[in-house]
Design a protein around this nucleic acid. Structure first.
Length: 243
DNA sequence: AAGAACATCAACCGCAGAGTC
DNA sequence: CGACTCTGCGGTTGATGTTCT
């Protein structure tokens, strides 16, 4: 509580006004993350030369700058997925987003309020009728709901309460799950489905390093930040160092 | 053409959970 | 064990663009 203490400073300096991110700020943040990775949001803006709160930087990165984000409009399939998942999960945007790669909770939340909220009520029934029909037609409805390979739990997107724990749990349960017919590839696939980008942040975060299985990091084919290749040579080696 | 009303999206806030010391 | 810090989530709001009158 009372975190991101620099928020207060930021508030004062901006007089509570919303300040859009400039291209220059975006560039600074991207360059910094390319070079040093994500190690501590609250300290990062200081080192990156940004007069923003850590919270603001995090939000900007997650909702706008992350390289794997989809910029195009929501497809019909995604729209149906949101409707269906919202009916199952309610306003659990993070859980919904876990099934929609490339989308952010903010995106989905905004889209829901802007386009789909009306579909969940009785009003405008006709407008949404086709969507409802599609939802009722299970053969044409194709949401992939990843199940937890350990618990076979469909209802929750997470096996435990934190992703760090889950990755650790994968390591700890590898032998057991294999004996139940679940391979480590299955586990990796499950997590890739849930949070394809999460591994990058974990990879770059100091206190997570010890918890994670090497398997996660050994997937050299997976490089979500590959679009930023200019600094790729040092972004692995300097992740844990303060600049 | 101008202003009002509405829609959209980015940004912010407050809180809670987990980790650390 | 409690205080503190960091992170993530969901709700809300402000800014801006678009449509309507």
């Amino acid at each position: 509580m009372g975190n991101f203490l620099d928020d207060d400073i930021n508030k004062m300096s901006t007089s509570l006004k919303r300040v859009s991110w400039s291209a220059e700020e975006d560039e600074k943040l991207i360059s910094y993350i390319q070079r040093y990775g994500i190690w501590n949001w609250s300290q990062m803006p200081k080192f990156a030369g940004l007069s923003r709160s850590g919270k603001s930087c995090r939000l900007r990165w997650l909702n706008y700058l992350k390289p794997d984000l989809k910029k195009e409009e929501f497809s019909k399939e995604e729209e149906e997925s949101i409707l269906h998942l919202h009916s199952l999960l309610g306003n659990k945007w993070s859980a919904i987003v876990a099934r929609l790669p490339g989308r952010t909770d903010n995106d989905v939340k905004n889209y829901w309020h802007a386009h789909l909220k009306k579909c969940s009520g009785k009003q405008n029934l006709q407008v949404c009728q086709t969507v409802e029909q599609d939802n009722n037609n299970s053969s044409s409805f194709n949401i992939q709901e990843p199940t937890c390979p350990i618990t076979n739990d469909i209802s929750s997107s997470r096996c435990t309460t934190s992703s760090e724990d889950q990755h650790g749990e994968f390591r700890d349960n590898y032998t057991d799950t294999s004996s139940q017919g679940t391979t480590f590839d299955d586990l990796n696939f499950f997590w890739d489905q849930l949070c394809p980008f999460e591994n990058l942040e974990l990879r770059n975060t100091n206190h997570h390093m010890g918890m994670l299985s090497d398997h996660v990091f050994q997937d050299s084919n997976y490089d979500p930040i590959s679009s930023y290749t200019s600094c790729s040579d040092d972004y692995n080696g300097s992740l844990l160092l303060d600049p």
